[in-house]
Nucleic acid binder design. Structure first.
Lengths: 209, 209
DNA sequence: CTCTCGGCATGACATCCGTCATGCCGAGAG
DNA sequence: CTCTCGGCATGACGGATGTCATGCCGAGAG
């Protein structure tokens, strides 16, 4: 943002949809003498263009954003600019999110519960080529194993999450109602839930949905 | 935090459970020459004690926190220290939240989607005795009317929100299963939903739950 | 070639959910 | 006193949900 930083400062992009939080994080990082927030975006689908336009070295991405999730934006950025380091900073430390983020090319995964100092430190460490992950969360991700839901099971479970009736889900996804019931039944079993509502909750907590 | 501020700076407390966000907001407010963040807490139930211990003039409270919600903390603080101004800064601009916050004694209600500058400005304005509310949100709160759910309907709907079976809810709340079904049926009708899942979603969006 | 897997479907059936009718009780207001 | 409201309950019943059996198809691996 400011041009009076040292030319060796790390050029950082911040992607976070809540304006107040994003600007506060930019202010916080701005206090670091070696970090320069050169771009801020509020939508996932603006990440790549902004990163390229500002010659960004480290992108700090929230996950839940409009336009594209932070994980999707990470994958896109990794494809377009493989040398750009990616830090995911998210509200929920869900194991499935961690797994997907790392698969998408992220170099660090932070939870917003952590002290603010960890964000600046992660920015410096990823630039040095390090990986930054909470060991407890890493263990949970490894213990959970891969997401057991097939693509279609996920689609149907996601469609059911807001209270949609089977008949409506069937219409929406161009399936028969019986097929919807089958997919939901499988999703309920794979999440060890008792019904769809519980299955949604479990899948979300694990970052499977 | 720092003691080298002018003695006329506004003494502010920040309550926010996410460490990174809280410290970033403190850093942001710390850049204002007339604002001094003298206390930070991560739990709603720590608000009152910290506000009194630090002679706080303005308390900035998130809503969703462990130990006590920001709205409950606002009510408690308003009772213990009526001259302390209260700013609610929340992720979701739910009409029911606004209503409840103002009833609890809040002087301002901000949504985190807003630009960061609005937070410092709200702090200054409430200290001058002003009320700060987004007019669109205020209109929505007035249009929604009061929460139509009775206390028991709310209890039962909340208990149903994570997928609990009626039999389990009945056990948990010491009711008969038929009564649970009745309360849920009423909640479903009052929220104009088609089933419990939708009723939960609607009630949450309106801040009724 | 066979086997596995994901996607899709039909059909049967038990259980759960949601609605409605009905009614009792206590508290508070008029 | 009556009326209203919230809390609670029983009972009947139709519809939605969830489970399971079964089977077809295409794609990919061995």
């Amino acid at each position: 943002m400011t041009d009076d930083q040292s030319s060796t400062a790390i050029r950082v992009l911040l992607a976070e949809d809540q304006g107040m939080v994003r600007e506060a994080l930019a202010a916080l990082l701005g206090l670091e003498g070696d970090i320069d927030v050169v771009a801020q975006v509020a939508r996932g689908d603006e990440v790549v263009a902004a990163a390229l336009a500002h010659d960004v070295q480290v992108a700090v991405l929230d996950i839940e954003m409009p336009g594209m999730t932070g994980i999707e934006a990470a994958a896109a950025l990794h494809r377009e600019s493989p040398q750009t380091k990616i830090v995911i900073a998210t509200t929920f430390g869900r194991p499935g999110y961690l797994r997907r983020a790392m698969e998408a090319g992220a170099d660090a995964f932070l939870v917003k519960d952590a002290p603010a100092a960890e964000l600046a430190e992660a920015v410096r460490r990823v630039l040095r080529g390090e990986r930054v992950i909470d060991p407890v969360l890493a263990a949970a991700a490894l213990a959970e194993g891969a997401n057991p839901l097939t693509g279609r099971e996920r689609d149907v479970l996601a469609a059911a999450s807001d209270g949609a009736l089977n008949a409506e889900i069937a219409r929406r996804l161009h399936l028969s109602e019986g097929t919807v019931r089958n997919y939901l039944s499988m999703a309920i079993q794979k999440t060890s839930a008792r019904n769809r509502t519980e299955a949604v909750r479990v899948a979300r907590e694990k970052g499977w949905l």
